[in-house]
Structures are given as C-alpha cells and as structure tokens.
Computed example of a mutant assay.
Amino acid sequence: MPHIIPIKDLKNTAEISELCHVAEEPIYITKNGYGDMVIMSVEVYETTMKRLNMYRELELSERQIESGKTKDSKQSLGKLREKYEI
C-alpha cells in the first residue's frame, strides 16, 4: 500500500528518510489534499532507473526483431572468432 503524507510532515526529515528506506517504495506527498511530489531513497531510485532502462532495451530489441534487423548468431560468433583469432 502506498505511503501518502502531507507536505507539512516534511519538517521531520529524519523520520521521512527512515520511512523512505523502510518502505522501499516511493512516498507520495500531498499539498492541500492533492498529489504534489514523490520522494524515494537513492536505492529505490537506482533500481527503478535500471528497470526502466531494461524495459527500453527490451522494447528496442523487439522493434529490431520485428523489422528484421537480426543476425545469425553462429555466423556472428564465427566472424568474431576469426577476427580475434580465438
């Protein structure tokens, strides 16, 4: 369940920091009852960015497959072995 706190609670920085690390998910900040900001720990942010990048790479790969921009793996490995004499 998401954590939602009012903006006035941001005065308690130590408590908010602890909550960010314990919750291991974004914390939603409201202002006048409406969503205003989202905060999270650095660890959660980095994990989220890695996951987003992975999804982007998968989408790019799927588009390349759909458009026929693929190569035969045996031929590609053979060329690399030949090039680097391994």
Results as ranks from 00 to 15, higher is better:
Asp36Met: 07
Thr70Gln: 04
Met49Arg: 01
Val22Ser: 08
Tyr45Cys: 14
Met37Phe: 15
Val42Asn: 08
Glu82Phe: 13
Ser67Gln: 02
Lys31Arg: 08
Ile5Asp: 09
Glu43Ile: 00
Glu46Lys: 03
Lys50His: 06
Ser41Met: 07
Glu82Asn: 11
Arg63Val: 12
Lys71Thr: 15
Glu46Asp: 05
Ile5Arg: 01
Leu19Asn: 13
Asp36Asn: 04
Lys79Gln: 12
Lys50Ile: 02
Glu57Trp: 09
Ile86Gln: 04
Asp36Cys: 02
Glu46Asn: 07
Thr47Leu: 08
Arg56Glu: 07
Ile29Ser: 06
Ser41Asn: 11
Lys11Pro: 03
Tyr28Asp: 02
Asn53Ala: 10
Lys69Val: 15
Leu10Arg: 12
Lys79Arg: 05
Ile86Phe: 06
His3Val: 10
Leu19His: 13
Glu15Met: 10
Lys74Trp: 14
Lys50Ser: 03
Thr70Glu: 06
Glu59Gln: 00
Ala23Pro: 08
Ser73Met: 12
Ile65Gly: 07
Val38Asn: 06
Ser61Asp: 10
Lys69Ala: 15
Asp36Phe: 12
Tyr34Asp: 13
Lys8Pro: 02
Leu80Tyr: 10
Asn53Thr: 07
Thr70Ala: 05
Tyr34Met: 04
Glu15Pro: 00
Glu62Gln: 15
Leu52Gly: 11
Lys11Phe: 05
Arg51Met: 08
Gly35Arg: 04
Glu85Pro: 02
Ile39Arg: 04
Arg51Ala: 06
Lys74Arg: 11
Arg51Thr: 11
Leu10Pro: 11
Pro6Tyr: 05
Gly35Cys: 04
Ala23Thr: 14
Glu43Thr: 01
Tyr55Ser: 09
Leu10Asp: 08
Lys11His: 05
Arg56Asn: 11
Lys50Val: 07
Glu25Val: 02
Met49Val: 00
Thr48Cys: 00
Ala23Cys: 12
Gln75Pro: 00
Asn12Arg: 08
Ile65Leu: 12
Lys74Val: 06
Arg51His: 06
Gly33Leu: 10
Met37Gln: 13
Lys31Ser: 10
Asn12His: 07
Ser76Cys: 04
Lys71Ser: 15
Glu15Gly: 03
Lys69Arg: 15
Leu10Val: 14
Ser76Ile: 10
Glu57Tyr: 05
Val22Thr: 12
Glu62Leu: 15
Pro26His: 03
Arg56Gln: 13
Val42Tyr: 13
Lys79His: 04
Gly78Asn: 07
Pro2Cys: 14
Gly68His: 03
Lys83Arg: 13
Ile16Glu: 12
Leu80Asp: 08
Met1Tyr: 11
Thr13Asp: 09
Gln64Phe: 12
His3Arg: 09
Leu60Cys: 10
Glu15Phe: 11
Ile29Gln: 13
His21Pro: 00
Asp36Gln: 08
Arg63Lys: 14
Lys8Phe: 07
Gly35His: 02
Gly33Lys: 14
Met49Ala: 02
Thr13Val: 11
Lys79Tyr: 06
Ser76Leu: 12
Lys11Gly: 13
Lys50Tyr: 06
Arg63Cys: 07
Ile27Gln: 09
Ile65Glu: 11
Leu52Met: 03
Arg56Val: 09
Gln64His: 04
Thr30His: 04
Ser41Gln: 03
Ile39Cys: 08
Val38His: 01
Leu52Lys: 07
